[in-house]
Amino acid sequence: MPDNPPPLNAERDAIVAALAPVVDGIAATFGPVCEVVLHDYRRPEQSVVVVAGAVTGRSVGGAMSEIGLRMLARGDEAVDELNYLTRTKGGQLLKSSTIVLRDSTGAVFGALCVNVDVTAVQQAQAVLAGIGSIGGAACGGAAGAAATTTFGNDIDSVVEAIVDAHQLRQSRTWVQLDRTQRLELFRSLDEHGVFAVRRAVEQVAARLGISRASAYSYLSQARAVTGTPAPSDSASDGGAA
């Protein structure tokens, strides 16, 4: 993310400061099942600047999830994602909304995220469905479709989880993938914002068991297909401060 002039950074700082009490207010309104997180994308490895509630266990200074990485990858083309379902690794079903933050130029620089743990609601609906066959099929279908999301204070664990999830969907190890499938893997990882953070290429290479040079080569080829500028060592390892 490019540097911004001091006045623009001051404006963004003011927006973040103004939203801090909003975070606390929303969380207090919904109680212990709600978590509200304010992200500043100017520092993706430590994007959490304000957090209220403990649904995902994150804290100030923590990293964004893959949802945030996807927003970061979209840049100013990012749009609000409202009322979607996801699931934590611990099995909690979350109803979430991600609202992008823009400055006066329209540039996206952060997000306000609301996560509500609806696991108890789902369990109650299952009980009612068993007693009176009310709404069970619809609820079960939505919950089953919720993808598992990694929330953590460590960006490394988030990146590794995304790589693992993509490999799992392929149902094959790296050595079993042909060239087309390998390029598709890198294209998908790029679309999900994985390479927007520092050291991501090295992490992906280590996770896949390939060299750093090979990872850069596959990423360059994947980007050539989509028309995205090819990566450089400095851009991919330290361009998103």
Results as ranks from 00 to 15, higher is better:
Pro5Glu: 01
Pro6Gly: 03
Pro7Thr: 01
Leu8Glu: 11
Asp13Ile: 03
Asp24Trp: 07
Ile26Ser: 11
Ala28Thr: 06
Phe30Leu: 11
Cys34Gln: 09
Val37Ile: 01
Val51Ala: 07
Ala54Cys: 12
Gly57Pro: 06
Arg58Pro: 05
Ala63Ser: 08
Met64Lys: 02
Ala73Val: 04
Arg74Glu: 10
Glu81Asn: 11
Leu85Met: 04
Gly91Lys: 00
Leu94Ala: 11
Leu94Arg: 10
Arg102Lys: 05
Gly106Met: 04
Gly106Cys: 05
Val108His: 08
Gly110Asp: 08
Ala111Arg: 07
Cys113Gly: 11
Val127Cys: 13
Ala129Ile: 06
Gly140Val: 00
Ala143Gly: 01
Gly152His: 10
Ser157Lys: 06
Val158Asn: 00
Val159Met: 01
Val159Ser: 02
Asp164His: 12
Gln167Ile: 04
Gln170Glu: 14
Ser171Lys: 15
Arg172Asn: 13
Thr173Pro: 00
Trp174Arg: 13
Asp178Met: 05
Arg179Gly: 13
Arg182Asp: 05
Leu183Glu: 04
Leu185Cys: 09
Arg187Asp: 15
Ala200Val: 14
Arg207Gln: 15
Ile210Met: 10
Arg212Asn: 14
Ser214Tyr: 14
Tyr216Ala: 08
Ser217Thr: 12
Gly227Asp: 07
Pro229Lys: 13
Ser232Ile: 01
Asp233Gly: 10
Ala235Glu: 06
Asp237Val: 01
Ala240Asp: 08
